[in-house]
Amino acid sequence: MLRYLHRNVPLLVGLALLGILVAFMGIGALTVDVGSAQPLSAPALQSPSWDYPFGTDRQGRDLLAVMVAGTPLTLRIGFIAGFIGVGIGSVLAFTAAYYRGPIDTLIRSIADIGLTIPQLLILIIIAVSLKGSLTVNQMAIIIAALAWLSPTRTIRAQVLSLRERGYVEIARLNGMSGPEIILRELMPNLLPYLAATLVSSVSAAILASVGLEVLGLGPVEAPTLGMTLYWVNFNAAIINGWWWWWTAPLVVIVVVFLGLFFLSVGLDEVANPRLRRSA
């Protein structure tokens, strides 16, 4: 395993970055009072000091507490939406690619056309239409509503190439039913690929959630990473020179995206060993 990681550097880097993140959240949850992520729990606009290592914002939130409380929230949105997206996406993709015919045409067309429409815009319309502030879970569900389009498309292409293989043919001749072939022959072979798709879906969902939040359509009460950046923008923290306010969320988000990106590149390599010679 370790030897393999040595060859698959992207996987190693991805796991390391996400490991740092998990360690930060774990240690933070045990040592930091998450209550100070609420406004007015600390003096406003302190630059980083011994008492407030990440500084505090204009509303008097301790930014270390905000990061400890907000990182898991942002990741939760990503994972809920990513799982739902890949779940629905794989069901549609396996059905379409295995049975072909009109079902395939329908599903493929919906995914293809849906992908030419920028998802952020549709999400904005939905978020604006729902009255009042959203909760973190509602946010995840809204993003999941569109998160299945891209997995459907990519998984379908993979299944198409697998279904003509010899062992699938043999299973078919042995009288295995369609769902059985999908579950017992196709799925296990695609597991690494599904994992890679899941990671990129989670990353896309987090990107969408941060985007909505920066535009002010997120859970206003929750200290998520995107909402923190919304307050940064709202208070013009950059022009005012409050550099610590945006540094902390920026570093955490960059670590999240880089970690997920390298993880998905690494998993791609596991899924498709022929790529190895290109690395």
């Binding site: 985007g211 920026l250 880089l258 990106f261």
Partner: peptide
């Protein structure tokens, strides 16, 4: 760079 959203890089650049 490729893994980072546009606007995050924008924040750093504008600072």
């Amino acid at each position: 760079l490729h893994a980072i959203p546009f606007f995050l890089l924008g924040l750093v650049l504008s600072w």
